[in-house]
Nucleic acid binder design. Structure first.
Lengths: 127, 127
DNA sequence: ACTAATAATAGTAATTATTACTGATAAGGA
DNA sequence: TCCTTATCAGTAATAATTACTATTATTAGT
């Protein structure tokens, strides 16, 4: 809604925090973790900024089991979700880019991005 | 939780209804539509059965903008989401199967399914 | 067909996740 | 430094989903 985006310590902290971890936290996890260094950070602020950051493409978001997860790593990659333990693992390969290119050709319209969730049983749970 | 699954008119109606439409309704849409023929159907029943049906693979589910959508068409396909008008369109092509096969080879573990969401601007909105 | 066991339901209450609101704070251009 | 207003903290409100409970319905066994 605002015409200009101003800097804020809170948004900076949220982005830095997300980029500094390798998992896929939900909004309340980000909130809980950041409260340790920013004791009066507000949950609404976390939501507002995660929305803003994903809107501008600075973080990724996706939903697993009805719960939103955020990812500070924006290099194209897919996610594996273990149906047994619930783990969310990164899959860094060319699939993302391949599918995007294929879809652009096939659909002949603007494609901003592709989200791929792979469901299965992780190696740890397969033993 | 139950050890055996019993037949129920409600679950049958929900499944039949979903298979009879080509869009991707949310739980409350299914509820609203089915209430016309089953006036005392409960919303909780819709949720419980949609969970059961997606769990057994009889319907697909995916989340767009934090809202869950269900799909009675379980032939492998992807979904296109228009960032402008919010439309959800089916993409029937080989991508789904290709990606699944690729992931199985790459990850060397059981892959039950793949969910692909393509974000962009639909043809109608591109004019 | 009758009966017993229990899965499933309707209706409602409770929970969870997310957004909206409000007065105070602070970024940043003039 | 001053002014405009984006952003904030704190809290209230909303939306989506699940949990609970007494009742109903399915189904296996007689």
């Amino acid at each position: 809604m605002p015409v200009v985006r101003r800097y804020s310590r809170q948004r900076e902290a949220i982005l830095t925090h997300l980029k500094g971890r390798c998992d896929h936290p939900s909004a309340d996890q980000v909130y809980a973790d950041l409260r340790e260094t920013l004791p009066n950070l507000s949950l609404g602020t976390v939501y507002r900024n995660l929305n803003a950051l994903s809107g501008s493409g600075d973080v990724l978001r996706f939903t697993v089991n009805g719960k939103e997860h955020f990812d500070g790593n924006i290099t194209p990659h897919s996610h594996f979700i273990c149906l047994n333990c619930g783990a969310i693992l990164d899959i860094f390969d060319a699939t993302q880019n391949k599918v995007k290119a294929q879809m652009e050709k096939e659909l002949d319209c603007f494609v901003s991005g592709v989200q791929i969730l792979v469901y299965g049983k992780c190696n740890a749970c397969s033993k």
